[in-house]
Computed example of a mutant assay.
Amino acid sequence: MIPYQPIAAPGAPLARRNPVAKVAAALVVSVALIATVDPVAPAVAIGFELAVVPLFGVGYAALARRAWPLLASALGIFCTLVLFAAERTGTLLWQVGPVEITTGVLVTALGMALRVIAVALPGVLIFATTDPTDLTDALIQNVKAPPRFAIGALAAFRLVPLLALEWQMVSLARRARGIEAGRNPLTRLRLFGSTAFTLLVGAIRRGTRLATAMDARGFDSGTPRTSARRQQFTVADAALVAGAAVLASGALAVSVALGTFRPLVG
């Protein structure tokens, strides 16, 4: 089952911050790092992000368990760019048949892989340290998001573990009927597609019922709603966003100072 509950220590200084402030800080870092494709800026940002992990009350082992799909994605991007890059500039380092690995390709691939990690890691930290209900309350109170949208998103997020459980149930039911892929990769791929389609149909039906139930409870009536738990945006929350801006600016400044800055456009 996919975990969604926060795993942070309750008294951690950054874990206690307003959820909107944490999301805003992650967006600031992400937007800044998207502006460059060099490996230095995201590497510096990753160093800062890993340094503040204890302030979120999360252990590095627990973070690794949550972030392993991110690391696998970054590795896949790196290998794909190294093997299939269209432009192969720089010094030739290794060649096997038609595949040529050059310094330019390695720098570009490393920059893209590190940027994926640097941009996504703050999001992993946010969802590992934030209760989904608190995030919904903060979006409604501090960002003035429509309750229909915010609470609908919360309900969908709560259903993610249910989809994982249904995937297991469908797979076990097919196995009980003797439908197995065995060691055939094509059959395994076909079964994966059919199982995914089954879950998609079930998710659409469940989403339709959920939307009808929300409308029946007045979520689309336009009547002002009250909140049971207040989410205050304090000076400390603003300092978190400002600190994220300083972090992003520092990473770009190091890249510019070392002469490795490569803008995404231009």
Rank of each mutant, 00 (worst) to 15 (best):
L14S: 03
P42D: 02
A62Q: 14
A64W: 13
Q168Y: 09
I101R: 04
N184L: 02
L110Y: 02
G178N: 12
V116Y: 06
L240V: 10
S171P: 00
T195E: 10
A113L: 02
R183V: 14
A228K: 06
A245C: 07
P13F: 06
M169Y: 12
Q232G: 04
F157S: 11
F84Q: 08
V29P: 00
A245W: 08
R262W: 02
K144R: 15
G222P: 05
V52G: 00
A253Y: 08
A25Y: 01
F127K: 06
F56M: 06
L200R: 07
P98C: 03
G90M: 04
V96A: 14
G76D: 11
A85Y: 01
A62M: 10
A203M: 10
V31M: 12
T36N: 06
W94F: 13
D131M: 05
P69D: 08
I151P: 02
A26K: 01
E87P: 03
V143K: 11
I140K: 07
E87A: 12
R190G: 08
V37P: 00
A248F: 01
S249A: 15
R174F: 03
A203F: 03
A245P: 05
A21E: 06
L191D: 10
L264V: 15
D38V: 11
F261I: 12
D131A: 11
I2M: 11
A150Q: 03
A41M: 08
T195A: 09
V99D: 06
P161R: 10
P122V: 11
L172R: 13
F149M: 15
A213K: 04
A8I: 13
D131R: 12
A153L: 15
A239Q: 14
S255Y: 04
A62V: 13
W94R: 07
T103A: 02
Y4R: 13
G57P: 01
S194K: 09
F219Q: 07
L33N: 02
L125M: 10
A118L: 05
G218M: 07
A150Y: 04
N184H: 06
K22S: 08
I101L: 06
A74Q: 05
L106G: 02
L81R: 03
G11P: 00
I151Y: 11
F48Q: 04
V235Q: 12
A74V: 12
A113G: 03
I204P: 05
V37H: 09
K22D: 08
E49N: 08
V246I: 15
F192N: 09
